[in-house]
């Protein structure tokens, strides 16, 4: 085993991440404004921005899903129980005593079990909930003639808002956890440069050296 600087976030994935950041912040700022929390953005402008950002984000998600499926990177996001308790225990107790993080990033598994579970819930439940309700909300007038549409609209709208609060909650915890361990800058850097320190088995190292040398630095 040796530690190497490995390109774990190729250009598309970094672009995906940062475009999500910009779009989700746009959606949150305009969305909570539309919800009536504040009057920072004029309503009409907010409607347009929110709609455009949502449609662009949907397009990005479609691309990303295609990319995840075709590159096999979807495996990173599959949850597993193994090791989850150790990570949970670490954040609850160990971190205060200066213990080492129990999870070691490996090449084919860049997320710790808790992270993977979080992303799994986010990608399978929260995001579909928010864009599903969002699309229904946006297209209300197409299904308005259906019976009880007036009953369902507030439910859909409220689910949309609730999902938005959950996404904000995710962002808060996500950003906070970047400060744990090596620190904020260290954790953000890979998403900028693409390179992170990964323990590679000799076989992985040999394979990458031979076939994907661009993934290895130094």
């Amino acid at each position: 085993m040796s530690k190497r600087q490995v390109k774990v976030y190729p250009r598309f994935e970094r672009l995906w991440h940062w475009s999500q950041l910009v779009l989700i912040v746009t959606l949150a700022v305009t969305g909570f404004g539309l919800n009536g929390m504040y009057g920072l953005v004029p309503f009409r402008a907010a409607v347009m921005l929110h709609t455009i950002a949502a449609l662009v984000l949907l397009a990005v998600w479609i691309f990303a899903t295609f990319w995840l499926l075709t590159t096999g990177t979807w495996r990173h996001f599959m949850p597993r129980i193994e090791g989850m308790l150790a990570v949970a225990r670490f954040y609850a107790f160990g971190v205060f005593k200066g213990e080492a993080h129990p999870y070691h990033k490996i090449y084919w598994r860049k997320h710790n079990p808790l992270q993977a579970a979080t992303y799994f819930v986010l990608k399978w439940f929260i995001f579909p909930a928010i864009w599903g309700t969002g699309l229904l909300y946006l297209t209300y007038n197409f299904w308005e003639p259906l019976p009880n549409s007036g009953f369902w609209l507030p439910i859909i709208a409220n689910l949309h808002v609730l999902a938005a609060y959950v996404v904000v909650t995710f962002v808060i915890i996500h950003v906070y956890l970047l400060t744990v361990g090596h620190g904020f800058r260290h954790h953000v850097a890979p998403m900028v440069t693409g390179f992170d320190e990964i323990e590679l088995t000799p076989e992985q190292e040999a394979y990458l050296d031979q076939n994907e040398p661009w993934r290895l630095k130094g």
Partner: peptide, 19 residues
């Protein structure tokens, strides 16, 4: 939760989590 967690880390004086 995040603020509480961060405060305890500060008081404990440990950054924690280095490998």
């Amino acid at each position: 939760g995040v603020i509480g967690h961060g405060l305890i880390r500060l008081i404990a004086g440990k950054k924690g989590g280095s490998h």
